Structures are given as structure tokens and as C-alpha cells.
Simulated assay, not measured.
Amino acid sequence: MTIGYWCVLVAALLPYVFTLVAKSGGRYNNYSPREYLEKQEGFRKRAHWAQLNGFEAFPPFAAAVIIAHLAGTAQGTIDMLAMSFIGIRVVYGALYLANVAVLRSVVWMAGVAVVVALFATAP
């Protein structure tokens, strides 16, 4: 497997890190987990939002990596962009937890730019 494909797996699993943070406080209720998460406050609430955004960001990223591979984009380019996306998403999540909204939005846009770059580099 290529580094780009491994990054797709990491991107698929990364939201669950924020899920664990969101569910780490108080008495978790597995009978109504969505209700429990909506009642969280502070950084745990933001961790929940970060997980949701991670699930939203995953499909376009995964599609971009796969399409870049199929289109014959240079493997080094795919790998570099895919690793950049993972780094960006980690920083994005940390900024979400820290409640740094403006910088978080800038980092989010960088993630979108990486996805667009993956599509744009296809020959």
C-alpha cells in the first residue's frame, strides 16, 4: 500500500480520537450516545464537533487520493499532499479543542486546498 492510501486509513480513523475525547467526561450513556454528546460542554462539546467535521472531510479526501492514483499523478505528489492533509486535520482538531476559531477556519481551508490540489494534479 502507498503512503497516500495509508493516509486515507488514518483520515478514516482520526475522527474517533475526538470521539474518545468527547465521551471521556462524566457517565457515558451508551443507550443514547447522540443525546449524551449533545449535552457535553466546553472542550468535550468541541471534540464532538471536531469528530463530526472529520467525518464530513473524509469522503472528498479519500476520493481525491483514489482519483489522483487512478489518473496517474506522481506517487510522491500524492503522498506529500495526503500527509499534509493528515497534519492539517490534526492541527484543525487541536485548534477546535482549544477554541481558536479564526485560525481553525484558516486551517480548515488549507485542508480543502489540499483536496483540491489532489484533484488538480491529476494529468
Rank of each mutant, 00 (worst) to 15 (best):
L13M: 15
T19L: 14
V116N: 01
I67V: 13
T121I: 00
G76H: 11
T73I: 04
G87W: 11
S32F: 01
A57G: 05
L9S: 06
A117Q: 09
I3N: 01
L52E: 10
F119I: 11
V114S: 03
A57E: 04
S105T: 15
Y31H: 11
G93Q: 06
A117I: 02
L103I: 15
S105C: 06
F55C: 03
A101M: 12
W49Y: 11
I78R: 06
A117G: 05
A98K: 15
G42D: 13
A101L: 14
A12I: 09
P59V: 02
V10R: 04
R44A: 04
Y92A: 00
P33K: 04
A98P: 03
P123Y: 01
L9V: 15
P60W: 09
K45C: 00
P33S: 06
G26A: 11
V115C: 14
R89K: 14
G4S: 04
F43V: 12
T77P: 03
F85A: 10
A117E: 10
E38K: 14
S24D: 10
G26N: 10
V90G: 01
T2W: 01
A47D: 07
L20Y: 11
V107I: 15
V8G: 03
Y36I: 04
E41Q: 15
G26T: 07
M1K: 08
R46D: 01
L81V: 06
Y16I: 04
T19R: 12
P59S: 06
W6G: 05
V106G: 05
T2H: 07
L9H: 07
I67P: 00
Y96G: 01
F43L: 12
L14I: 03
A50D: 03
G87A: 07
A117S: 15
G54K: 09
V115P: 09
T2Q: 06
A22I: 03
N99W: 10
C7P: 06
K39N: 12
A22W: 03
E41G: 00
S32D: 08
Y16W: 15
S32N: 13
P33V: 03
T77D: 13
Y96D: 02
P15T: 05
A98S: 13
W108N: 05
M83R: 13
I78W: 07
R89W: 04
Q75D: 15
R46N: 08
A50L: 05
A82C: 09
I88A: 03
V10P: 02
N53E: 12
T19Y: 13
N99E: 14
G42E: 06
S84N: 09
Y28H: 10
Q75K: 05
A120N: 10
W6Q: 13
H48P: 00
V112D: 01
